[in-house]
Design a binder for these strands. Structure first.
Lengths: 195, 195
DNA sequence: GTCTATACTTGGATAGAC
DNA sequence: GTCTATCCAAGTATAGAC
């Protein structure tokens, strides 16, 4: 599984053949099928492994962040970490691969769902009773954020250029202060307590 | 090229082989190589064709929209149109494919750049002298929007489920009113005219 | 320009020895 | 569990007839 991650990062989905992965691992190609049945299953197992590691990391990082400014800083740091660790690369590669191997689709949405859930949960906590909560449900915002992360990773992987992403995070940091003000003040709540 | 678009929409990148495309077109497989040299070049040509059509459509649609609310409505309508026309599908498929065929990467960024430029241009017009313009440059926002579109398309294509995207657009429409207020009122400009 | 035929390559997958 | 050997399918690409 480590070799699969390594190969996905280095060669992308197309390069992640049973032969290539086995060669990275220094073992024989047939072992892939002995242990995992198919290459796709190995790829999904590898994705699960890195996802789990990253989820733990995300949770501890977000737990220590209070308010939009810190959360955005955490998001940026973690995005960088993800790129280094190759987690986003692996995810992007497999999602990209899913467009070429449709069987992967359903397996992948199951693996992305927790990330949307995780994001929605923390957004929900932040938006709390703020006026934004009614306008923009946490689930929608979470979907958008996950889609944004994914789109950024794919665009960034096309050129090697990370300037766009960094510049975007810088802009978000600048936005975090007025945003904090907006969230901090529950603002003219007209007090209509709907369920 | 029509057959290539059709095949990409129906079968994804993996299914878009010279054989499959030729079969869709009702011609012989060898013609792909006679006319386009390689399959990738055909795919890029097809992408160019649909991109050009869509760009014309985007421009005329956005030209008639004034203010955030209308622009968001236009964005939603056009997103739906794109899904129908398959333009986003084709783009998503080829981008996904690029992760498996690295030679496509540079060719693709050249083809995406105009879309970021187009988006930035119109955002620039809208943000104008608003207080947001300093905090969030149009280029960053444009990059984010394009990434978001792409990510949405890829996530949506994993399941067949468009509910997320529709729900997100609905939320954005609700947000467009306060946003319009924010943009309309140049707001407490402390009047520090920096270059 | 379009076809048939075919060479070549790569990768998934299995059988069977060890 | 790991290896060698091998089969088979699918795809790119080219040669050459028409």
């Amino acid at each position: 599984m480590e070799a699969a991650i390594e190969t996905l990062k280095r060669e992308g989905f197309a390069g992640a053949s049973a032969r290539a992965i086995a060669s990275t691992a220094g073992v024989n190609q047939a072992l892939v099928f002995y242990h995992f049945g198919t290459v796709n299953d190995l790829l999904l197992a590898a994705l699960d492994a890195t996802s789990e590691r990253r989820m733990v990391r995300y949770q501890e990082a977000v737990a220590n962040a209070a308010g939009p400014a810190e959360v955005i800083a955490v998001a940026r740091d973690i995005y960088r970490e993800d790129l280094d660790a190759g987690h986003l690369t692996v995810l992007g590669a497999v999602i990209a691969g899913a467009s070429t191997v449709p069987e992967l689709g359903p397996a992948l949405i199951e693996r992305i769902r927790p990330w949307i859930g995780f994001t929605a949960e923390h957004l929900g906590g932040m938006l709390g009773g703020s006026p934004l909560a009614d306008l923009a449900p946490a689930e929608d915002a979470a979907f958008a954020i996950v889609a944004l992360y994914l789109g950024m990773e794919l665009l960034t992987s096309l050129d090697g250029d990370q300037a766009h992403a960094e510049s975007l995070f810088a802009a978000l940091e600048r936005l975090s202060l007025p945003l904090a003000a907006l969230l901090g003040t529950p603002a003219k709540q007209e007090g209509h307590p709907h369920a």
